[in-house]
Simulated scan of single mutants.
Amino acid sequence: MSNATFPNPGLGTFRLNGDTLKQSIKEALSLGYRHIDTAQFYDNESTVGQAIAESDVPREEIFLTTKIWHDQLQPDAFKAAVNESLRKLGTDYVDLLLIHWPSPEDEVPMVDYLNALSEAKASGKARHIGVSNFTTAQIDRAIDILGEGELFTNQIEVHPFLQNTVLIDHCQRQGIRVTGYMPLAVGKVMEDDTLKAIADSHEVSPAQITLAWLKARDITVIPSSTKAEHLKSNLEAFELELTADEMAQIGRLDRAERIANPDFAPNWDE
């Protein structure tokens, strides 16, 4: 496993754009965030690039992630897509380049697009490479193709209601970091009685309890927010320590509730 830093938490940018996104990035950077996550599919790479360029934080201090969409996985298309992302982001490299979703029905052979991903790293266009929404079986195939230690992360949906324990344990045993998206279950954590009770005992919010629980599981999270107070409270969540009993209470909230489940998704792990 690489010793590169992977700032936690990061700032997710899904469904954000324009001046709202730009202000969110600038506010996050001013608060101390150093990890920004975007994707071609979000259609906001240009705005992300502008916000970084206009900030006072040097590019080399920011861990920048983008992802290639599943319709660009043919090797020639993949190479062009990487170049387009770099142009939009206004940078010569990204810190992390991900396959956003595995090719539906293996339309593009995994060996083809993972080798293209590896070539992006070899050329210096990506410092680290990884995947998103890969199952345990797909992770194993990817390791067979690329070798051990090449995959930096698997970015997956994880929150108290979809704990993804089998996949997370599998990745971590292989030395692959886990990045959790939708960590707050699109706000549903705020309504859960267990999380509210634990939050009350710490005098914090259920969102902060959730982020502290994910940190305790050694998961890097990328919540998005447009409000300065939420950006700040997300950072403060990482100072919380939960008891073993609190961790166990949250562990019992799993109900396999998957929010991101498009029709081209792989056959998920149970």
Rank of each mutant, 00 (worst) to 15 (best):
A4V: 12
A4G: 13
N8F: 06
T13R: 06
F14H: 05
F14R: 01
G18N: 14
G18E: 09
L21C: 11
A28L: 07
S30Y: 11
Y33V: 07
H35G: 03
D37W: 04
Q40Y: 04
F41S: 14
D43A: 15
N44A: 06
V48H: 05
G49E: 08
Q50T: 15
V57H: 10
I62Q: 09
T65F: 00
T66Q: 04
D71H: 09
L73I: 06
P75I: 04
D76K: 07
A77T: 13
F78T: 06
N83R: 14
L86D: 09
G90Q: 05
D92P: 02
D92F: 04
D95N: 10
D95L: 09
L96M: 09
I99N: 08
H100R: 09
W101M: 03
S103P: 06
E105V: 08
V108R: 03
L117V: 03
A122W: 10
S123A: 11
G124F: 11
A126Q: 04
H128V: 08
V131D: 03
S132L: 02
N133R: 03
N133T: 01
F134C: 04
T136N: 00
A137K: 12
Q138G: 01
L146Q: 04
G149L: 02
L151I: 13
L151W: 00
F152Q: 08
N154E: 00
Q155F: 02
Q155G: 06
V158N: 10
F161D: 12
L162H: 12
Q163S: 07
Q163M: 09
L167Y: 05
I168H: 14
D169M: 14
D169E: 15
H170W: 12
C171W: 08
Q172I: 13
Q172N: 04
Q174R: 15
R177C: 14
Y181W: 11
P183H: 01
A185G: 06
V186L: 15
L195Y: 06
I198Y: 00
A199P: 04
S201H: 14
S205H: 06
L211P: 06
W213L: 02
K215M: 12
A216N: 13
A216K: 14
A216C: 04
R217M: 12
D218M: 08
T220D: 05
S224L: 08
S224T: 01
S225P: 02
T226L: 07
A228K: 11
E229T: 10
K232N: 07
A237L: 04
A237Y: 00
F238W: 13
E239T: 00
L240H: 02
E241P: 08
Q249G: 03
I250M: 03
G251E: 10
R252V: 10
D254C: 10
D254A: 02
N261A: 14
P262C: 11
